[in-house]
Structures are given as structure tokens and as C-alpha cells.
């Protein structure tokens, strides 16, 4: 839902970042307002996943230029856990398995961390169990998964459902979902997308990072951005995704080559 007067939640300006000595992001700019759903598409290696990790504060990535403001605050100055407590959520492309740590305990500690960030009281074990049972329905997940270790031995689909369950519990203002559709069959995709749609509202925003149109068949984006070589090459409405589906990414290469040949024109 696009409302020009909605508050800006995330303001990315000319963001540049590298991993080790390799520059990946070369000037990304993006403004996200409350109520909006954005999709970032692009080939492997275009910098999509890097963008999500930089936003969440992964220590392997170094920001070399530009700025990110989250509700007016300098996001890059915050530790990853502070960002999460303030309502930034990253849904992982490859959720991490943590043997020996119970999923239920993990979800409770995380939920209470976020609640303290919102100035709410922490939930005790019983109150939390009530909450988690209710939120399980968002992703149609078997309560048995709560008793297991975090993501350990979960199938690809179960891991992604566990991500959306975390999103449902943490109640983020900006959710960045990194290739949440990868490795999902049609049924799992529908459930996961249903969860995302259910959680999207006028006060929060979603940034979907995806490779394929099929996720956008079930979650309708307000904006589609095409990334290439560490930049956003073009921005459009949902029809841009359809165009990509139809024409493939070859035209992106052509456009990229043109911009790189003539940098003076771009500036």
C-alpha cells in the first residue's frame, strides 16, 4: 500500500559495502515507507543478499560509504541485536542450525528481547507458550518443532516456516526476507507467503529479496527494484517483475554495460 504521506521507516543512501577486499555494494539508494512492500530482484552475485546482511549488521561486511537511517536513527551505528530490538528483522536465506538450544527457549529469549526494545514487559514461560501457540497458526507449524533444537534436522520448508514464526513473534517494523522462497515447494511457498501477507500492515514494511516471480504471484509488491553489480538499476511497479520473467535478465546486462561505458552521462 503506497501512501506518500506515510512515515519513512528505512532510508538507504548511496550505500557501499565490501566483504574482505571485495566491493559488493556500489551505491544503493532506497526509501521504504510504512505500509509498503518492496521486492529486490537480480541475478546471483548482484548484491541482493549482501544488502540484507549489511542492514542486519553481519560482522563479515564492512560499510565503506553511504548511510542507512531507520526511523531517523543511524542504523549502521547499532549492534545487530539493537537493530533487532528496535524492530528490524532479517529472514535468513539459510537459517542456522543450533544444536542443543531448544527452539522454544530461543524463541522466548528473542521475543523478550524485542519486547524490552518496545518498552513492554517480558513474558513468563506460561504467557509465552500461549503466545507461541497462537502464532504457530500463522505458519501452520506443528508444535513438536518447539521442542527440538533450533532448526536442527528441519527440512528447508520447516526452516523457512520457523523464520516466519520468528517474524510473527518479533513483530518487526521492517522485515527483510532474503530468498525466503528458495528451496520451497508450492505448498510451503503458499504457507510462507500467507504468513508474510498476514503480518504485513499499514504500520510496517517488507523488503523481499528474491530471484523469481513466483513469490510475487502470492505477495504483491508495491515496488520492484532490479539490482545488478551492486546497484539498483531500475525501479518500477509489480509489472517490472513480470517483464523480468518474460524477458529474462539479459537486458539488465545490456543496460549495465551502457551505464558502465558512459559513466559521465550517468553523473
Amino acid at each position: 500500500m503506497i501512501r506518500p504521506d506515510a512515515p519513512v521507516l528505512l532510508e538507504i543512501r548511496d550505500l557501499q559495502a565490501r566483504v574482505e577486499d571485495q566491493p559488493i555494494l556500489k551505491g544503493v539508494s532506497l526509501t521504504i515507507r510504512a505500509g509498503e512492500i518492496h521486492a529486490v530482484m537480480g541475478r546471483n552475485g548482484s548484491g541482493k543478499s549482501t544488502l540484507s546482511k549489511v542492514l542486519a549488521g553481519h560482522p563479515a561486511y564492512t560499510v565503506t560509504g553511504g548511510s542507512v537511517h531507520y526511523r531517523g536513527e543511524d542504523l549502521l551505528a547499532l549492534e545487530p541485536e539493537q537493530r533487532a530490538r528496535l524492530g528490524l528483522f532479517l529472514g535468513f536465506q539459510y537459517p542456522v542450525e543450533i544444536p542443543g538450544v531448544s527452539n522454544l527457549e530461543f524463541l522466548r529469549v528473542a521475543t523478550n528481547a524485542r519486547r524490552s526494545g518496545k518498552g513492554e514487559e517480558e513474558l513468563d514461560t506460561f504467557a509465552f507458550e500461549d503466545l507461541v501457540k497462537e502464532r504457530l497458526q500463522v505458519v501452520q507449524m506443528d508444535p513438536a518443532f518447539l521442542e527440538r533444537s533450533v532448526n536442527e534436522g528441519f527440512s528447508g520448508g520447516e526452516k523457512k516456516r520457523n523464520e516466519i514464526l520468528q517474524m510473527a513473534l518479533l513483530d518487526p517494523l521492517v522485515a527483510v526476507l532474503d530468498e525466503t522462497d528458495s528451496g520451497l515447494d508450492i505448498d510451503a511457498l503458499r504457507i510462507v507467503a500467507g504468513g508474510v501477507n498476514h503480518l504485513a500492515g499499514p504500520d510496517n514494511a517488507t523488503l523481499l529479496i528474491t530471484h523469481y516471480q513466483r513469490l510475487l504471484d502470492v505477495i504483491t509488491p508495491d515496488y520492484v527494484h532490479v539490482m545488478a553489480a551492486g546497484r539498483i538499476l531500475r525501479t518500477g511497479g509489480k509489472e517490472l517483475a513480470l517483464e523480468l520473467e518474460e524477458r529474462g535478465y539479459d537486458w539488465v546486462d545490456a543496460e549495465l554495460a551502457a551505464t558502465e561505458r558512459a559513466p559521465a552521462e550517468v553523473v
Partner: peptide, 12 residues
């Protein structure tokens, strides 16, 4: 693993 937990609001 540390980053995953931190990204859920859990301090280092």
C-alpha cells in the same frame, strides 16, 4: 550461529 542469535535481539 552468534550472528543468527544477535539478529534476533540476543546480546553477544
Amino acid at each position: 550461529e552468534l550472528f543468527y542469535l544477535q539478529s534476533r535481539g540476543i546480546a553477544a
